[in-house]
């Protein structure tokens, strides 16, 4: 009946997660160096430079190391590895990397490597230093298959939103500066388009998260919707991204305004994960801290 926890294995998992941070840090340095190099040239070549290649290899290898850490955490806890804040963060970081690396066939995605790897590094650092908790068994309220579905889709949606946000940021940087580095970035139209595509997928996944959460809430708390703080913020994020999609279809509202809106919506996602989890009173008290 009681699931067996494997404390030593969770330490091994932590070791892998920490090691992956070293890879992310190295990848971040390589990507930044590559960016600095870009500023010196006028044309950007279609082929990857050796530094860029190395950066992607390091990122990919770091993702594998992180993946092992996440899987070991799941084995150690005898369940899915996303039941508290530390676990959301490491699973989320892994999914961001996986989504990013699999979308590399869109050539221009390589330009935002610095943002993505930097964000993953910050996430992992926060996870290990601020959110870390020992493996624990699940409290009865979390023992449901909806934990598997609802949370993994939420984390996946966040991964797509993250990549879109990196494009929003690049867009605004490029639109607001004449710096040489930004000049070799993809065109504003293209970056807007990429951001839109990732946001669209994120929005559909987020809608699913909302519905799955409501179904679970009906099972666990006898009502499908109760304006619990986490529900409120999930709703706010959904409405903000809906606003972004409308902005993209409204003349005069695409471009910079839509990019700001997408960025604000992404800040709401981060706010929901950090501030709401830690400081707001509500039923979703699963940080484990």
């Amino acid at each position: 009946m009681t699931p067996q926890l494997n404390e030593p294995l969770s330490q091994v998992s932590l070791l892998f997660v920490t090691a992956s941070m070293a890879f992310m840090a190295l990848a971040l340095m390589l990507f930044s160096f590559q960016l600095a190099q870009l500023g010196k040239s006028d044309e950007v070549s279609q082929k990857l430079s050796p530094v860029e290649k190395a950066a992607f290899w390091v990122t990919g290898f770091g993702a594998v190391v992180l993946g092992i850490g996440v899987v070991l955490r799941g084995i150690a806890a005898n369940r899915v590895p996303w039941a508290n804040m530390y676990e959301f963060a490491i699973s989320g970081a892994l999914l961001i990397l996986m989504v990013y690396l699999t979308s590399l066939k869109i050539k221009d995605v390589r330009f935002i490597g610095t943002f993505v790897v930097g964000f993953v590094l910050v996430t992992l650092f926060a996870a290990v230093s601020l959110f870390y908790v020992e493996v624990k068994t699940l409290m009865p309220a979390l023992q449901s298959y909806w934990l598997v579905i609802h949370v993994v889709v939420a984390v996946l949606a966040t991964a797509f939103f993250t990549i879109a946000a990196a494009f929003h940021l690049s867009y605004l940087l490029k639109a607001g500066t004449k710096s040489k580095i930004m000049r070799v970035f993809p065109s504003l139209e293209n970056m807007e388009r990429y951001a839109y595509r990732f946001n669209v997928v994120g929005f559909v996944l987020w809608s699913f998260t909302l519905i799955a959460g409501a179904i679970w809430a009906e099972r666990a708390w006898h009502r499908y919707w109760g304006w619990d703080t986490k529900e409120v913020w999930t709703f706010i994020i959904w409405v903000l991204y809906a606003g972004y999609l409308h902005a993209m279809a409204t003349r005069g509202w695409n471009g910079k305004r839509a990019a700001w809106l997408g960025l604000i919506a992404f800040f709401a996602v981060i706010f929901n994960f950090t501030i709401v989890n830690l400081f707001f009173k509500g039923l979703h008290v699963y940080s484990g801290l």
Partner: peptide, 14 residues
């Protein structure tokens, strides 16, 4: 939970 040392006394099920 009576078996996992770090977790003793956590309710597993009601």
């Amino acid at each position: 939970d009576l078996t996992n040392p770090a977790n003793i006394g956590q309710p597993i099920d009601f």
